[in-house]
Simulated scan of single mutants.
Amino acid sequence: MTHFRLTVLLLAAGSAMGVAADLPPLELGAKSAIIVEASTGIPVFEKDADAKRFPASTTKIMTALLLLERTRPSEVIFAPEDVETLTGSSLHLKPFEAVTAHDLLFALMVRSANDGAYTIARHVSGSVEKFAELMNEKAKALGCTNTHFTNPHGLHDDLHYTTARDLIRIAREAWKRDEFRVAAGTTKYEVSRTLNLEDTVLISRNRALRSDPPSEGIKTGFTRPAGQCFVGSATREGLQFLTVVLGSEDWYGDHQAMIEWAFANFELQEVVKKGVAAASVKVQGGVEEQIELLYSESVKAPVPKGASLTELVASSVPQAIKAPIGKDQAVGTVRVTNGSGWSEELPLIAAHEVRQQFLIAGQSVETIGFALIAGGLGLGTLYVKNRARKLCRGFRGR
C-alpha cells in the first residue's frame, strides 16, 4: 500500500474557510449573482450562481458574439419582411432596410434593439430556431451547463434561461474581442441606414457607464418575469472584475456593491510559480535518497488582500517513492485555493531523474564499479612503474 502525507504549505481543510470567513458580508437583493476576476475567470463571490434564471436582454451578449464570429464588419444585412412585428426596444427597422453588421452590433449593445437581434438571427442562420441552435451549441462549447436559448433577443419564453455562472462564461468570451469591448462601453453612437433616416442616434441606458468612470459596460436587461438583469465590467489599476446580476429590483445598486466589495477585498497574486520547489520525498532503491518536487505550472488567482499565500496552498505527496523516477514525473498533487470557495488541483513533478540502485553482495553497482575502476587505475599505475624500472636497469646494463 502507498502511504501519503499531507504537507500543508499551509492549508488545513478549515483554513480556507477561515480566510473566507474573515471577508465582510456582501448583501444583495438579486436572486442570483457572481463576481469573477476577468483574466482568470476565478470567482470571488457567488449567490445562487447555478440557479436557472431568465436573462432578458443580456441574451444579446451571445447574439453579438455570434455576429462577430459569423460576419464581417462591413457586411450588409437586410431586415426581414416581418421585422416590424418585434416588440420592445427597437431600431425601428423597415422591411428590407440595409444596415452593416458593425452598426447592428452597436444597435444590440447600445440600444438593445430586439429587431436588430432578429435581423441578425435571420441573416446568420435563416431562422430564429436555427440561430437558437447555434447559440446553444456555442454555450455548450464554452462550458455552459444550465443554459437554453430559444431566441436572439431575450423576450420572455419559459424555455429561455441561463445561470449567472454560465452568463459570465459567455461574457468573458465576448470580452476577448476588441469590437465587442468598444460597443459594450459606448454611450452614444450614430448608425448609417438606408431607410428611417430620422432615427440614427443611439443612446445607452446603461447607468453605470455614465456614473462610474471605471465601468466598461456591458449589458442591461429587463422583462417582468426576469426582473432587472445586468452583466458588468470594471477595471482599477489593471485589475478587472466582471459581474452578473439576475432577478434584481435594483441592478445598479447590486452591481455597485459587488464592484466596491471586490476591489476592497481582493488582489491578483501569483499563488504558486512553475519550477519552484514545493516539497521533497524519500526515494526507495535509488541512487539518491531524496528528490525535490516542483510546481508543474504557475497559478494566478484573486486572493484576499493581506492573506498569506502559504495559507492557500496544500500539497499531498507519498511517504516514499520507488526508483527509477523520470524527470517531470508526476509525484503527488497540490491544491490551490483563493480563500473564497475556488480551488484547483495540479500535479507536483520530479525535479530531475533518479536512477534505480542495483546491489551486488550488499553493495551498490555504482560503489562496486567505482572500486573496480579505482583498482584498475591502481594496477595500471603499478604496471607502468614496474615497466619503467626494468627499462632503467636495461640501460644501465649497457
Rank of each mutant, 00 (worst) to 15 (best):
E311T: 08
T310M: 14
V303Q: 08
G326A: 08
V336N: 05
V336E: 02
G339Q: 00
T310G: 14
A307T: 08
L346Y: 05
A301N: 07
V317D: 00
P302V: 09
R335C: 12
E344S: 12
D328C: 04
S298F: 13
V317W: 04
E297C: 10
A307I: 09
V331T: 05
E345F: 08
Y295G: 03
V336L: 14
V313A: 03
K300C: 11
S316I: 13
R335I: 12
V334H: 04
S316P: 00
D328Y: 15
S308P: 06
A320S: 10
L309V: 04
S315W: 12
N338Q: 05
T333S: 12
T310F: 13
V334C: 08
S316M: 11
V336Q: 06
T337S: 07
V331L: 06
A330V: 11
V299R: 13
L312N: 05
P318M: 10
E345H: 08
R335K: 15
G326F: 15
A330M: 03
P304I: 15
V313M: 03
G306S: 12
I325S: 04
S316F: 14
S343I: 07
R335M: 12
T333D: 02
V303Y: 01
A314I: 02
G341M: 08
N338K: 04
A320M: 03
P324L: 06
L312W: 05
L312T: 05
A323I: 02
L294R: 11
P324E: 00
E297V: 11
R335G: 09
I321D: 00
T333I: 10
E345A: 09
R335S: 08
K322Q: 12
S340P: 00
L294I: 09
G306A: 14
K300H: 11
S296K: 11
L346P: 02
E345K: 15
S316V: 14
A307Q: 12
K305A: 06
V331Y: 10
V317G: 00
V303M: 04
Q329G: 09
R335E: 10
I325P: 01
T337M: 01
E344W: 11
I325E: 00
I321N: 01
D328I: 04
V303T: 05
W342I: 02
A330T: 01
L294V: 07
D328P: 08
G326N: 06
T310A: 10
T310I: 13
G341L: 14
E297H: 12
Q319C: 12
W342A: 02
S340N: 08
T337P: 00
D328G: 06
A320Y: 09
E345T: 15
A314M: 05
G332T: 03
I321C: 07
S343V: 03
E311I: 03
E297W: 07
Q329T: 07
P324F: 12
P318E: 11
R335D: 05
S298D: 02
G339V: 06
E344T: 14
T310V: 14
V336H: 09
T337D: 01
V336I: 15
K305H: 08
E344H: 12
E344F: 15
S315V: 07
E345D: 06
E345W: 12
A320G: 04
K322P: 02
R335F: 15
